[in-house]
Amino acid sequence: MDQSFVSKKVDQEADLITQLVGFKIGREYFGVDILMVQEIIRSTPITRVPNSPEFIEGVINLRGSIIPVIELRKRLNLYKDKNKDGKVWILIINVDERVTGFIVDSVTKVLKIRTDSIEPPPDIVTAGLSSQYIRGVCEIDDGLLILLDFARILNIEEIKKLKDFDRED
């Protein structure tokens, strides 16, 4: 009885804090649950896949596995300005057993955020980003942190549709 009580309390406390990996695209701050991030790699040769949607940068060889890499900027239709130094980071994110790389401009430290401080996405477009890809927003010291919904970003149907669209062009 006691034990279960204790563990429950711990759980609750753990529930309160979410650890996020913060990253930046352009000037915007984004966050993703640390549990989804498999690893973060610096730029690696990316092989272009012809006839793929524009936001798919290509595939990389991650220790023998071939992993698609998505240019998050293009996927989310963010500002078109590329970062200057050309160096990118690739967040390897595991969404529903699909391992996918996402190109971001830079990665910041791990953020600890209270769950209750996360607010639902505002109806209005945030940072030029349609709210459907946003899981929530959260105030941090440097400004507004946008929590991305990667499952949504990786929605296969949508990608396929986009791909068909691309091809028909």
Binding site: P45, T47, V49, P50, S52, I56, V59, G64, I66, P68
Partner: peptide, 27 residues
């Protein structure tokens, strides 16, 4: 042969990818 993600493979004209001797990927 290594498979590609479904959305890259379907109707793309590629049946998969392979890793070349130098670690590069060839479709």
């Amino acid at each position: 042969i290594k498979p590609l993600v479904d959305y890259l493979q379907e109707g793309s004209g590629f049946s998969g990818a392979t890793i070349l001797g130098d670690g590069r990927i060839s479709l």
